[in-house]
């Protein structure tokens, strides 16, 4: 599958300072890609370079294989975005705002505007001035303008900011649906990690303008992790495990024994225990949360 978005060694210098160091990543159709990083890590700068608001010092950004630097107008027509807050013309109505953006792309009909308005649930207030909107309603209008021209790549900076829990859930389900059913590639940046975990298929974590790592949700649950064993008798089981993994940290908790092993090693450990006539009542994989992983990779939330 061809990537929708490719960042090739993208670098940004401002003055003598390098803000983004040779960042490379790819986003594919049908996936929701999370963009994580502490404050000041360079998330927004990277997004600004992807949509052509900021120049790229070296490297390139390709959207559907078209360089944003060489053919901006062609590359950007596949992109819908909200960069930071969805700032709209407050003296215009929601509908006039959408009309404004509709005129900037060929082929967006009045019917399409109505369709998008319905989609984001703004029918009742669309003819009111934007200055009367709540933050959540502006967020919905922001999403509407990003979807107007049926983009294949959607870039959303903090899309759930200002929404209530029901609204967050609604947007999350809708984004997942867009990715799965219509094959959009969606980039989401947020610092609400639990939110991201529920929404995204893969994550890039950046810090100090460098890519620290890219992980998928499945990988996250397959990595070296803790497994909680409920066994009887506990003492005998501990000796067995120590024999197989002499260097392992083992803690015996109230609920059972916690061991740190690879996902793939769980069956063999189970077999070893069973062959020693130990009763295994349960094996529970304690998935490392994205938050733990994030803090582990970035070394705490320091602002560079």
């Amino acid at each position: 599958m061809n990537p929708l978005l490719q960042l090739k060694n993208v670098r940004k210098d401002i003055g003598k300072k390098t803000i983004i160091h040779d960042l490379s990543l790819e986003v594919f159709p049908g996936e929701v890609f999370g963009f994580l990083g502490p404050n000041g890590a360079g998330k927004t700068t990277t997004i600004r370079m992807i949509v052509g608001l900021m120049g790229i010092t070296s490297g390139d950004v390709l959207i559907n294989g078209i360089s944003i630097q060489k053919d901006f107008e062609k590359a950007i027509q596949h992109v819908g975005a909200i960069v930071e807050n969805p700032e709209m013309y407050k003296f215009l109505t929601g509908y006039q705002n959408l009309l404004h953006y509709a005129r900037m792309t060929k082929g967006v009909t009045k019917e399409r505007i109505d369709e998008v308005v319905k989609l984001v649930g703004l029918e009742k207030r669309i003819h009111d001035k934007v200055k009367t909107y709540s933050l959540g309603m502006r967020q919905r209008l922001g999403l509407a303008q990003a979807l107007l021209h049926r983009p294949s790549l959607l870039i959303l900076d903090e899309p759930t900011n200002g929404l209530d829990p029901a609204g967050i859930r609604e947007i999350r389900d809708y984004l997942r649906k867009l990715a799965k059913e219509e094959g959009l590639g969606i980039i989401v940046s947020s610092h609400l990690l639990s939110e991201m975990e529920m929404m995204c298929d893969r994550f890039a974590i950046i810090q100090h303008g460098r890519l620290v790592g890219i992980e998928s949700v499945q990988e996250l649950s397959k990595q070296a992790q803790k497994v909680l064993l409920t066994v009887k008798p506990v003492e005998q089981a501990l000796t067995v495990i120590k024999n197989i993994y002499p260097h392992m940290n083992i803690t015996s908790a109230k609920q059972g024994i916690e061991v740190s092993i690879d996902y793939e090693e769980i069956p063999s450990l189970n077999a070893a225990l069973v062959s020693e006539n130990i009763k295994v009542y349960g094996i529970q994989v304690l998935t490392k949360s994205l938050e733990e992983r994030f803090l582990e990779m970035t070394g705490g939330n320091e602002i560079a």
Partner: peptide
């Protein structure tokens, strides 16, 4: 100052 420049310049208009 309104911040609308961002949404204005990410359309296929040079």
């Amino acid at each position: 100052s309104w911040g609308t420049i961002k949404l204005l310049l990410i359309r296929s208009a040079s």
